[in-house]
Design a protein around this nucleic acid. Structure first.
Length: 722
RNA sequence: UGCGGAGUAGCUCAGUGGCAGAGCAGCGGUCUCAUAAACCGCCGGUCGCGGGUUCGAUUCCCGCCUCCGCGACCA
């Protein structure tokens, strides 16, 4: 039997379920259902990536052990998948893979050994010991990434730890390296020989140019003393496997590769049966899947995946990536509350031109759901079946028009056979299938909806309600309704992978409850609907959504959540650190005030929570605020945000001050302007220029747009603000 | 500035070396089987700008501009 194996990435067990998880998993679920229909035996993997520093830290912060933390996240993810019908119980994934599974430890270590024993294409060792260099904070006991450190105080000096504000140490740590650099040519040959290996094409080109630019060896281990929440390196207990190396291997250990335990558990050799698979990923993790992973497999002597398929990301209406902090991401519970799961699935597959980014907001989902599902497909099913009930007592009529009535039918504009309709169905079906095979799901659905419009038009042209008035046209009427209903049957079969539940409901409404729904669309033949059978009861498949009402409910909810989060965040988390001083800039005391319903605009919610930390006047006078006048202003080269000013603060020499406002203020317009300056701020170097002070500005709106503090009356330069 | 992506109808986006497309929204009409639905028609675009290749470019090439994401930088 033909087999098909599809994977989502295993999601990092650090964040709660979000749109990204839902999307990739829906695509995977859709693909596997489609392939199963086509007669493949399928295996669908999703799961979680559970090791590494970030999880250690996040769990410590939450006062849990790493194990408790990942179990919690996994629980939330599984709940979400269940709610969206993506779990095994609903015919979804076959395995929820976790990298903390003992069998994964076994398989990953075996993989390491195989890779270590093998040679690169250039004949060298795949894995060697070297030194990993990084900036280390001793009090934190961790390495800091670029994003996690403050710039050096002096040129050429070490960067600072943002938590301890002390210089970081350049530490080199013994580490194993994977000799990725030896794989460039081998990889390029693969991309060349297998144009479908990385898709879509734009992504393939990206990968090719990346690899052409040369590859560097990658560190694949950490000292156990710095990262202990990880898989031990085989035969070297001082080291643990670095997260990416560990995580990617899951795609084969899940199938029992390298683990007797897992093979026994599965009861069959899944690896033999299903590998190689198709990896669905977001374009943000393309490198790991299209470069590192294939090289790893080559190193360990394992067959490469069938394909790496990268999709785009969901953006908000202004084109920004959806994120929790910006509040522009769609909330999964909100989707569940207001939309049918099938409507969400349809939206996700239809709205995104697969491979590209797409914009999304709740309104877009409502509009699609109403236009395509309620007015389109749902209404077609409803009008067709209603007429069968109304004119034929719910009994499926006969398609054929007897010889004697054909002329009459023709006069009414109805053909003597269903040829025209059935061939356009076949054409659409072929386009549908072909588009899916090309990962152009949006195009497949576009084709299906073109067909829906066609059937709607077919009905409007034939005017069954007119035919019903004439006993002579009884057979013509029957033929029209049969044809419409048969077209609906085809659509239900084709759309099953997209909307399993609704497709099933249609099958029941058509009176085909006993028929297999999961039949191969390629095998669809005209005439599957049997005349004389009783059709089921008609019920709306996709209720029309009241846009105004629903939007206001959603907005209300968003506000309440936000208000609640303010209260929550100011509470001590999980009972830990209750007595510690709060981080500067964060709310300090616990707010006990319950969230109030919105009175005004959402910006009201920006007000600080209850329990402000007071400072004394002595604290305030430490800050030396002075009036300064801009003498010169220019953009700082190679910086989007920085303006460099010279400012007269009433001193002998003007000061040089940098401010991150270049996106909102033109330098030319700044000259001569009077500003409020923090005059006794410790000087700092930014982009090579020393900033001797700081410009005060209000921070407005979600993005914190700066609005400079100004005076409406004339003030002398250097005047102190008190 | 580095990397990646995008600029086509009011909105969301398809698309192709050969007379510019869909859906939604808007306007007008038809109809009543249907979920205030469907059907018909209209409105609407110098396909970011400038060059080049070509008989012909929105489509290929070069340059530029703008926007977005990542990086950096924002204390």
């Amino acid at each position: 039997m033909k087999t098909f194996y599809v994977t989502t990435p295993i999601y990092y067990a650090n964040s709660l379920p979000h749109m990204g998880h839902l999307y990739t998993t829906v695509v995977g679920d859709f693909l596997r259902r489609y392939k199963r229909q086509r007669g493949f035996e399928t295996f669908f993997l999703t799961g979680t990536d559970e090791h590494g520093t970030n999880i250690e830290r996040a769990s410590a912060k939450a006062g849990r052990t790493p194990r408790e933390h990942v179990d919690y996240i996994v629980g939330e993810l599984q709940k979400m998948f269940g709610a969206f019908g993506l779990d095994t119980e609903h015919g979804g994934f076959d395995i929820f893979m976790r990298t903390t599974e003992p069998f994964h430890y076994e398989g990953a270590q075996e993989f390491w050994r195989r890779a270590a024993a093998g040679r690169t294409p250039k004949g060298r060792e795949n894995i060697y010991k070297g030194f990993y260099e990084g900036w280390f904070c001793a009090p934190c006991a961790t390495f800091k990434t670029e994003a996690e450190m403050l710039p050096a105080v002096e040129e050429g000096g070490p960067p600072l730890c943002p938590i301890h504000e002390r210089p970081l140490d350049k530490v080199s740590e013994e580490s194993y390296f994977f000799r990725l650099s030896d794989y460039d040519e081998a990889l390029l040959e693969i991309y060349e020989a297998r144009p479908d290996f990385v898709r879509p094409e734009a992504r393939r080109n990206e990968v090719v140019s990346l690899v052409r630019g040369g590859l560097e060896d990658v560190s694949i281990s950490r000292l156990k003393s710095s990262v202990s929440w990880a898989i031990p390196v085989p035969d070297d207990p001082q080291h643990t496997v670095y997260i990416w190396f560990d995580a990617l291997i899951n795609y084969i250990t899940a199938l029992g590769w390298g683990s007797e335990q897992r093979r026994a558990q599965a009861g069959e050799d899944l690896f033999e049966k299903f590998w190689p698979g198709v990896h669905l990923i977001g374009k943000d993790i393309l490198r790991q899947h299209a470069v590192l992973w294939p090289a790893m497999l080559l190193a360990a002597g394992v067959e490469l995946p069938r394909a790496v398929v990268a999709h785009g990301l969901w953006l908000d209406q202004t084109g920004r990536k959806g994120s929790k902090t910006l509040g522009n991401a769609l909330e999964l519970p909100t989707l569940l509350r207001h939309f049918k799961v099938d409507a969400v699935r349809y939206f996700l597959l239809r709205e995104m031109s697969f491979g590209q980014d797409a914009k999304v907001d709740y309104e877009a989902i409502i509009e699609r759901s109403n236009a395509d599902l309620a007015n389109g497909f749902g209404n077609l099913v409803s009008r067709t079946l209603t007429m069968i009930h109304k004119y034929f007592g719910g009994i499926v009529p006969v398609d054929d028009i007897p010889e004697s009535k054909r002329l009459l039918a023709k006069r009414a504009g109805v053909g003597s056979d269903a040829q025209e309709l059935s061939s356009s169905l076949e054409l659409m079906r072929d386009q549908f299938i072909q588009s899916i095979e090309e990962f152009a799901f949006h195009r497949a659905l576009e084709a299906a909806w073109g067909m829906i419009a066609r059937v709607d038009k077919f009905i409007s042209d034939a005017k069954p309600w007119e035919l019903a008035k004439s006993e002579e046209q009884r057979e013509t009427l029957g033929a029209v309704l049969y044809r419409a209903a048969e077209a609906v049957r085809w659509l239900a079969v084709l759309l099953y992978p997209v909307m399993p539940e609704s497709s099933n409901a249609i099958r029941v409404q058509l009176g085909l409850a006993g028929e297999a729904l999961v039949s191969d669309p390629a095998e669809l033949k005209w005439g599957g609907l049997r005349p004389g059978e009783q059709v089921g009861e008609v019920a709306p498949l996709f209720p029309r959504i009241d846009k105004v009402k629903t939007m206001s409910e959603i907005e209300q909810k968003v506000f309440l959540d936000y208000a609640a989060s303010l209260v929550d965040e100011s509470k001590p988390a999980e009972g830990a650190h209750a007595t510690q001083a709060a981080v500067p800039g964060a709310p300090t005391a616990a707010g006990t005030q319950p969230a109030q319903p919105p009175q005004q605009g959402a910006t009201e919610a920006q007000a600080p929570p209850e329990g402000v930390a007071y400072i004394s006047i002595d604290d305030f006078v430490k800050v030396e605020l002075r009036v300064g006048q801009v003498l010169t202003a220019e953009r700082v080269p190679k910086s989007d945000k920085l303006l460099r000013f010279t400012v007269d603060v009433g001193e002998a020499e003007p000061r040089q001050i940098l401010a991150g406002i270049a996106e909102h203020y033109e330098p030319e317009a700044m000259v001569g302007r009077k500003l409020v300056i923090v005059a006794n701020l410790k000087p700092r170097k930014l982009r090579g220029f020393e900033s001797q002070g700081m410009v005060l500005a209000a921070s407005v709106g979600e993005e914190g747009r700066p609005v400079l503090a100004t005076f409406t009356e004339d003030v002398p330069n250097g005047a102190r603000l008190k």
